[in-house]
Amino acid sequence: MGSDVLPCYVACDVSLSMADHIDELNTGLREFRGAVHADASVADRVLCSVIGFGEEPLAVHGLYLAGEVAELPPPGPCAGTNFGPVFTYLRTRIDSDVHLLETHRVRVHRPMVFFLSDGQPTDPVTWPAAFAALTDPTWRNCPRVVTFGVGDADEGALGRIGTYRSYLSRDGVRLGTALIASVMHVLSTSGPPPGGTLS
């Protein structure tokens, strides 16, 4: 592991409506994994965690080197796509992970969240408060959020969530390309963090 790392969290909708898209997203994760692994300058600096969500979030795996990223599980039977619980989960998880990394004297770049979905949230009243807590600018670990919409994704909702960048697969953008471009841009424009998390 490098002396400075970028924690990335891939949060993917695995509700029933995603059944037609999981293969495409797994292909994107493989492309991302291969590109990071092939670049010696970043291979040991990008850590990646994969989280599935439907009605509730499910950790697929914790922070691994990006070259070891696991594939997404098949969609579950749940029809709900609740955004709020995964935002709440991410805030807790990021705090815990950053604390652990810093305990081991690893300098941590401001985390990045990749949020992937094809639908509209089924908790439209409650998710904005959970998202506001995740992206609270006074929180030292506030992540950059990149959204990637597949299928008939709600462009309006994803536009509100993508604080850093937003992509739509229907515009011809591939997931792997979006992931790689976002990570490389951060690493090329952010200097090594002096101690704590970058702002």
Rank of each mutant, 00 (worst) to 15 (best):
D20S: 13
A157E: 10
A59V: 14
D123I: 09
E24F: 12
T189G: 11
F114D: 00
T147A: 07
V46C: 05
A79Q: 15
M112A: 12
G162Q: 06
Y89N: 02
G80H: 15
I180F: 05
V113I: 03
T138P: 01
R107F: 09
T126H: 12
L198N: 15
F131P: 00
G159E: 08
A130V: 03
V183Y: 01
D97C: 06
T135M: 04
F115L: 06
C12M: 10
V145T: 05
R45F: 06
L58R: 15
A132L: 12
V60P: 03
V146C: 06
F114I: 02
A181G: 09
T126Y: 10
R144G: 05
H104I: 14
P7R: 03
D136W: 04
G195C: 14
I22N: 07
I51C: 02
V50E: 00
G176C: 02
L116R: 02
L72R: 02
G34N: 07
F148V: 11
F53H: 03
E71S: 14
R107H: 14
A70W: 08
A79Y: 15
T88P: 04
D154R: 09
R107L: 11
E68C: 10
G196K: 10
V98G: 00
L16P: 08
F83K: 03
P128I: 08
V113E: 00
